[in-house]
Design a protein around this nucleic acid. Structure first.
Lengths: 221, 221
DNA sequence: TGCGGCCTCCCCCGCAGGAGGGAGGCGGCC
DNA sequence: GGCCGCCTCCCTCCTGCGGGGGAGGCCGCA
């Protein structure tokens, strides 16, 4: 098996050199190039086609996030391993969005760095636990909501739920009546019962409940 | 530095034995125990206090997900590395939710397994790229919406946006007036201008726009 | 200096929408 | 058979909201 081809991107010469030396101690790694800035990194990777790019975020000129985004547009992009000083860095999510495969704190041990590069090169993703926790938390939030709308909504009849959903589309009573092909009076009594059952004052609050309960999900229309 | 203490949980004796032998080849690993089922795994971990648990998902009796959940209730829980046969396994998200630190395909190479254990032991999280991609995609969906609500909303002044946000909380005009410490008439004119600028008929539609545009995100309250 | 945008407050008007009743038809369940 | 829940429709009352004006004060910009 051939060595993992690596490019190091960091604006600080010392840091860059340190990583290069460190990585060179591993027989299965080959540092094929380096860059001090995003624009340069993109150009170099286009030529050298590394397997993994160690990418600093904060750099003069094009930053690591944008560089990552550019790199990922390539049909056969390298894996990008982001190096951050603080793992709570705001940019972490932007980097994920840009397509980074992982994060590593700059103060990680050499062994950790080696493991990380190998993991990322193999196509896995590596995340700091705090990041994962937040990601998972966000994700769990969506899923939980998606499977069980909300206790209170269970009290509604199918027709009432239907009406609530239409309210949450911003329809007026006459419009809902037209949509359901019933009289407006009918709609009004449905609406009244929905509000009563949910303990709400007006249809505006009903819309809020519809969204917050997960009965209606943004973007589903 | 002491060896990483590992417990292997898998209902198939052969698999369990294979992992034990494999892990034993590494000087920095120490397999301290194993279990064939969730209940047993929880009990064993309580006594042996391993650093990492290699956990199969599908098992008779208590499955890996539930076992993970139980293990994580411990004040100083072990890191759980889930072993799946297919990384598209439905349970992946449940496992993340339960607190697993990572996933590994059972057909991974020995080196990958070793790296994975070390990574997880160090407190990082390891995810298969497909899982990460889906997680990040979900997450990005939320964020994208969060940073750039919508073109039309840009036309609103800060005060108008503020009012829209309060409308989207289900507040009436008098309530908004109280909240902003201004007259109700003021609120009415703000509301009117919001509706006019966004081309809406009533506040109900304004709530819909607030959610659909991402100005307001379900669960943020 | 004047202009324009924003926030503030005020007026009148019309109406959709919500409260609070009642009532009939239909289906399922006991 | 009788009861009950759901869907349907009807009535009155009235208030909250939105439309359509106007107006004054403040600030930033030209």
């Amino acid at each position: 098996m051939t060595a993992t081809r690596i490019v190091v991107v960091d604006d600080q010469d010392v840091v860059r050199a340190a990583f290069e030396v460190l990585l060179a101690t591993q027989p299965d790694f080959a540092v094929v190039g380096s860059a001090a800035e995003g624009e340069q990194a993109v150009r170099i990777c286009r030529d050298l086609r590394p397997d993994v790019v160690l990418m600093d975020i904060r750099m003069p000129g094009m930053d690591g996030i944008e560089a990552t985004r550019r790199l990922l547009t390539d049909p056969e992009p390298p894996r990008v391993l982001i190096l951050t000083t603080f793992d709570l860095d705001e940019h972490v999510y932007d980097a994920l969005d840009a397509g980074a495969s992982g994060f590593l704190l700059k103060d990680a041990t050499a062994e950790r760095l080696f493991d990380a590069v190998r993991i990322v090169a193999a196509g896995e993703a590596l995340l700091a636990p705090t990041v994962t926790r937040r990601l998972v938390a966000e994700f769990a939030r969506i899923r939980v909501r998606r499977r069980e709308p909300d206790a209170a909504l269970q009290a509604l009849t199918t027709r009432e739920t239907e009406v609530l959903r239409l309210i949450a589309e911003g329809l007026s009573n006459p419009e809902i009546a037209a949509r359901l092909v019933v009289g407006e009076e009918t709609v009004k009594s449905h609406v009244s019962r929905v509000l009563a059952k949910l303990g709400l004052r007006d249809r505006t609050q009903a819309v809020v409940v519809a969204y917050e309960s997960g009965l209606v999900v943004p973007g589903d229309r």
